[in-house]
Design a protein around this nucleic acid. Structure first.
Lengths: 167, 167
DNA sequence: CGTGAATCGTTTACCACGCAACTATTGCGA
DNA sequence: TCGCAATAGTTGCGTGGTAAACGATTCACG
């Protein structure tokens, strides 16, 4: 504890262009999410509901274990329980106990769920395209992918380890 | 139901590279926010608290009207009221009624608030730098700014107007 | 086998936010 | 100047998230 918190003080500040990048990002993400949510709202699905249906529909048998689904959705177990409650109430998803492991419940997309997803898909597609993709200059699509892949890869391991990010 | 919902169907799907960009973004943003929040947690401030203090400290007299602050924070009036409750309780912010308009309350950053902000600043700076900026290739910083400025500009007007986004 | 650790899902606080209703105040127009 | 719409902030309520505690089940290992 004699060392002055290792490296917190010695970080080189953001340059003007770096600061601009960070601010543009931070100020936009919230609004963007709100817009995507609002675009999807007329379909009767929230963005969260939509993602559940997407993941389930992409599964070969249209079902997933709760744990796996929660992981994909970046949701806590209890959060997924609540989110599924809504989808089950609307008839878009069924809860089915696994026959091989009596601890696990599988979420299964219903016909109603597939119908709702099919109806929401073009709306969401148009939303993403108009709000984001169409705003990008030709070369920026790849830059976009490159940037967030790089950020994501740095996020995987270094949670509270602090400095062991890379070199 | 004869017409295929006007224009939802006619949207051109995402290409492989466009889809990759969208997925990389969508899957990363949540984790990134969690990481920034976790990095800042040891300072005793949430990201939301931090932003309040930043905005107040940037004001010439260290104070702002609730409405203006809520707008900057992209928060509802009630949301700001409650967020300030916490900061006031911790002594980082004072509520002071305006002397020119008795409807308005001004949030004022206290010495304690400036101290907490000064302590949190290098932590947050290091967080943003390590999580984001240092991950970017040289030319990508400007691409980052360009991308989110473009997205933000498209968000400003077109809320539920649907298609009047641009051309 | 059998027992203790690990896993799975839910329930129970608790917290943060938005919406709508409400009070107080201001400002505009007849 | 009177009255009414608009504005500012707070509060009650519903929603949706997490963390922690809990029961049920499975797994690993002696």
């Amino acid at each position: 504890m004699t060392l002055p918190s290792v490296n917190a003080q010695s970080v080189v500040p953001l340059s003007t262009s770096e600061l601009a990048a960070w601010r543009a990002f931070a100020e936009t993400v919230t609004d963007l999410n709100s817009a995507l949510e609002a675009d999807l709202a007329p379909t009767g699905l929230t963005l969260g509901d939509y993602q559940v249906l997407v993941f389930l529909s992409e599964s070969p048998d249209g079902s997933m274990r709760m744990v796996d689904l929660a992981c994909r959705l970046q949701l806590s177990p209890s959060g997924l329980t609540r989110r599924l409650d809504g989808l089950v109430k609307h008839g878009h998803v069924d809860r089915v106990p696994s026959d091989t492991d009596r601890r696990v419940m599988r979420a299964v997309i219903t016909d109603s769920g597939r119908t709702a997803l099919a109806a929401a898909y073009p709306v969401h597609l148009a939303s993403v395209r108009h709000r984001i993709i169409d705003r990008l200059a030709p070369g920026d699509v790849d830059a976009f992918t490159r940037i967030f892949s790089a950020i994501a890869s740095g996020l995987q391991s270094a949670d509270d380890s602090g400095n062991a990010v890379t070199s």
